[in-house]
Structure formats: structure tokens, C-alpha cells
Design a protein around this nucleic acid. Structure first.
Length: 463
RNA sequence: GACCCCAUCGUCUAGCCUGGUCAGGACACGAGCUUUUCAAGUUCGGUGCGCGGGUUCAAAUCCCGCUGGGGUCGCCA
């Protein structure tokens, strides 16, 4: 039997946008906003739009625009449509002129401002109700329009004292460019945005924009205001308290999978106690109603842990590929043997949390000479170790094979002969070979360092 | 200051809508195991419903107040 319910009604088209202004690098908070928009679009079979809000010609820079697109691409947040507000000035102008003609706006010098008093009075209700998918209904009375003194402490009254003086919303600025709210409203309407998903800092912009929607005779979209990301102390996220640009994290060797995974967990949870969630899995489970209301503190430690999880499960070949640019930058491993390099990577993979860790730990394999810190030398390379070093160098030099077993056999032989615990020689040798007090197993280390360098560093350890 | 938003371990969160499961998981932290070091891994552990009132047989969950935190108040976006 055919269903009796009419399902022919076209389902509402889901269209969302991420609207950064290219006045700086893509911020970690911006990336999160983009991510939630993206997840919502993908989970609903909707459209994800990237709209560049570059109305401020002074502050907008092409390099930032490119950087934002590069960062989003790196994070795997692909967009379906692309717009730049700077190419749409004539559209905003047209609607401003229309409002002017309708008497809902007026000229203020070169600028055009909305007659908010008239627009407010045109409203059928004496309050503005915004429905927020995350927070429910948010109600504003007229006070959000009140004009205040410089110090914000007192409300300015009309000259005739008949009531509070209302602020006029700038639509077109004195230089002819549109204001943020005006361009935003027009674009969201024209681009048929169904859901405006943005940061909580925009909640108080919403009633102003509502007034513009109504002045234009348009229906407002649905809103969802995401909680803000705070810094580690719960304060406002700023450059002062850590890296804020996505590209900074990329430079340190965070993986896009790790960043995206961490970011999605800030204010949302798949609900099944899972921490490690791929973008695909998140899309399947994502629901905007499950997004938290409270702000979330950014924890570099958890990000780092999550990043380490992705590094650990990565095929060695791929990890090596990712390391290549970092090595190249340092001038390391230009002609390194790929097979050898993968052996080295495999050695450090379990302990890496970010790609840069590898650079800090494996430098001794690429530098011709290494030198441990003086205090470590003084502590470990004591003269009573000289005999052990001599015997070890001698023994290793004469081994035919130089693998884990061979090096260990020689080493065990030496400590047995000297009658000392293995640990007494292990640590000094590690210092001599790597310049570090910590690292992977000593025999693996020797193996990847190679016979020549190992023997030479042992011989020169005390010089 | 006004308006708005928010409130579960130190942090991210599940649970809240549809009151009744020792408030569950993760990061971090501590301890054990492992071990040539540091990590990793593994086992175990402590830590929380901001406060005060209601409603109810019963409140993390519903209501009110307080406190605390955050946001906004630009011809920036």
C-alpha cells in the first residue's frame, strides 16, 4: 500500500554559511564555527557556503583570504559555494535605496541609517523574539536600542524628554560600503541561508538584524548560537594565552584529524563515550540540538593527546611523508634512505604527540656532531666509564652485523666483563650517542644510528 | 552600568526535555605493573552536580532567587 501521507512537499533546503572576514588568520574559534556549520550541512545533505565578509577594505587582505581558504582545505572543510561581499556592493546599495525610498531609512551625511524607531513601531509585537536552535527563545525588549552615554552608564533621552533616544543602525557607511549587519542580512536572505550558525558573541546582533529583516519585509532564518571557546583559564581566547591561528598548530605538527576531532568535542559530544571521532562518524551523529550552551575552555593537553592518537594509528609511510617537509626545513635527511627513515620514524612514532617532537628527538641522527648539555655530561660521562666505552667501541667495531641482537650481545658482554649493572653503562652511552638522557631503547638507537657513527661517538665521548 | 547568554570532577563532557539507575566516559593528576631511561601500553585510584529556597514520597534533572562566569553595547566584523 502506498502511504496515505503526502510526502511530496519539498523538504526544507538546508543552507548554511561560514562568514569570516579576512582581517587575520583563521582563528581556532573560527575553525570551530566553520566545522559546526560544515557538519550540519553534511549531516543534512545541505549546502555549505563560504562567504568572505571583506567589506572593510582597510583591514581585509588577500593573503588572509588565501590563508583562510588554505586552512579550511587543510582541515578538510570543503565548501560548495563561494562569495565575496566586496563584489556585491551594488546589491546592498540597491536595498539601502529601497529603504530610503520607503522612508524606513534616512541619510545621515553620506551614510544611510535605518530609522529604528519607525521600524520598531512597525513591529506587531513590542518585543523581539528570536528562536535559537540551541538556546530556545531569546526575548529582547526595546532597551537594546537605547542610546547611552560615553561610559554606558546612563540612558540618553530625547530632547523633549518623551522617551529614550534610540540608536540608528548604520546600513551604508559614509564611504559607501555596507555595514556588517546590513550586508549580512541581505546575503543571508539572498543566499537562502536556512540556518545561521555562528558564535554566541553575535546574539546581541541578532535583534538589530531582525529589525532589518522586517524592514525589508523578509523572514529571518533560524539561528543557532554556538558557545564560545575560552582560553585555558576560562577567560577570553587571545594570542597572549597561546596559539590561536590554525596555521600555528599546523606548523607545530598537529594533524587536521586531531584538530577537527578536538574542536568538535568542544560543545558537542557523540554521546557514546567516544573521544576519538572521525569527521565521517561525526557527520552521521551530528545534531544541532545536542550542542552545549556553556562556553568551553580550550585544553592544549587534550588536543595533544588526541593528536597523538592519530599519529599512533597512522601507517609509517604516511607519517614519514608528513615528516618530510619538517625535515627538509631543517636541512635533514636530504638524501636519507627511505627505508632507513621509516625505521627511525617507527621508533619514535609511539612517543610522538606532534610532528615537531620528532625533530627534537631525532636530530642526533642527522647532525654530524652532537653535544650533550654540560650538566648531563658531568653527571653521566664520568671517567670511570671510559673503560666501558673503550671496550664497547672495540666490540661494536668488530661485529659483522649491526642489528639489535648483535649490539646487545656486545653490550651485555662488556658489562659482564666489568661486573657492573647494565644501567650503569646504558645511560652514559645514550648521552654520548644522542646527546639526550631519554629516548627509545639503546640497541634500537644504535641500530638506526649505524655502526660508524656509533663507534665514533663512543670513541670521542670524553674528548 | 544596561541588555543578553550560561552554570555536572582542575578541564572537555554523558545524564536534564520525559524527576527514582553507587552521577558514566575522556584529558590531566597519583600509584602499581612493564622496563636500560623517557614515553607508550596496561591495572587501580581520588576528585564534581556553585549557593539558598521551593514543588515532590523522591531533584543534577522542574520553578524562583542569589552568586559567579561570559558576551554585547563602533560608520570593526
Amino acid at each position: 500500500m502506498e502511504p496515505t501521507i503526502d510526502n511530496n512537499a519539498a523538504p526544507a533546503k538546508i543552507r548554511v554559511r561560514f562568514a569570516p572576514s579576512p582581517t587575520g588568520f583563521l582563528h581556532i574559534g573560527g575553525a570551530r564555527t566553520a566545522l559546526f556549520n560544515w557538519m550540519y550541512a553534511r549531516s543534512q545533505g545541505g549546502t555549505f557556503i563560504l562567504r568572505i565578509e571583506d567589506t572593510d577594505a582597510e583591514r581585509s587582505k588577500q593573503e588572509y583570504l588565501e590563508e583562510i581558504m588554505r586552512a579550511m582545505t587543510w582541515l578538510n572543510l570543503s565548501w560548495d559555494e563561494f562569495y565575496k561581499q566586496s563584489e556585491r556592493f551594488d546589491i546592498y546599495r540597491k536595498y539601502a535605496d529601497q529603504l530610503l525610498a520607503e522612508g524606513k531609512a534616512r541619510k545621515e551625511g553620506e551614510a544611510i541609517v535605518l530609522d529604528t524607531e519607525k521600524c520598531w513601531n512597525n513591529l506587531s509585537h513590542k518585543e523581539i523574539k528570536i528562536f535559537d536552535l540551541i538556546r530556545g527563545e531569546i526575548v529582547f525588549d526595546q532597551s537594546f536600542l537605547y542610546r547611552r552615554s560615553e561610559d554606558h552608564k546612563s540612558i540618553l533621552m530625547k530632547p523633549d524628554n518623551s522617551g529614550p533616544l534610540l540608536r540608528e543602525e548604520v546600513l551604508i557607511k559614509g564611504d559607501g560600503t555596507p555595514s556588517y549587519s546590513f550586508a549580512c542580512v541581505i546575503d543571508d536572505h539572498l543566499m537562502e541561508i536556512s540556518h545561521v550558525i555562528r558564535g554566541e558573541d553575535h546574539i546581541s546582533n541578532t535583534p538589530k538584524q531582525y529589525l532589518i529583516y522586517k524592514a525589508l519585509g523578509w523572514k529571518e532564518p533560524k539561528f543557532a548560537h554556538l558557545p564560545l571557546i575560552m582560553d585555558e583559564e576560562g577567560g577570553r581566547m587571545s594570542k597572549r594565552t597561546g596559539a590561536t591561528a590554525v596555521s600555528d598548530y599546523q606548523k607545530e605538527g598537529f594533524l587536521p584529524e586531531g584538530i577537527v576531532n578536538y574542536l568538535m568535542l568542544l560543545g558537542w559530544s557523540p554521546g557514546n563515550n567516544q573521544e576519538k571521532v572521525s569527521l565521517d562518524a561525526a557527520v552521521k551523529k551530528f545534531s544541532i540540538k545536542k550542542v552545549n550552551k556553556a562556553g568551553a575552555a580550550f585544553s592544549i593537553e587534550k588536543l595533544t593527546w588526541l593528536n597523538a592518537q592519530y599519529i599512533k594509528e597512522m601507517p609509517v609511510g604516511k607519517l614519514t611523508d608528513l615528516l618530510l617537509p619538517f625535515l627538509k626545513e631543517k636541512g635533514y635527511g636530504e638524501n636519507a634512505d627511505r627505508k632507513w627513515l621509516e625505521e627511525v620514524v617507527k621508533l619514535y612514532q609511539p612517543r610522538m604527540t606532534i610532528l615537531l617532537d620528532f625533530m627534537d628527538w631525532a636530530d642526533y641522527l642527522f647532525e654530524p656532531n652532537i653535544k650533550a648539555a654540560d650538566e648531563d655530561r658531568a653527571k653521566y660521562l664520568t671517567s670511570d666509564k671510559k673503560e666501558g666505552f673503550r671496550l664497547l667501541a672495540e666490540g661494536l667495531a668488530s661485529t659483522s652485523s649491526f642489528d639489535h641482537k648483535a649490539t646487545e650481545d656486545v653490550f651485555r658482554g662488556v658489562v659482564a666483563k666489568l661486573g657492573i649493572p647494565a644501567g650503569d653503562l646504558v645511560h652514559p652511552v645514550r648521552i654520548a650517542l644522542t646527546g639526550k638522557t631519554v629516548g627509545p631503547g639503546l640497541f634500537e638507537t644504535m641500530t638506526v644510528l649505524g655502526k660508524d657513527k656509533t663507534v665514533r661517538r663512543l670513541q670521542q665521548a670524553f674528548s
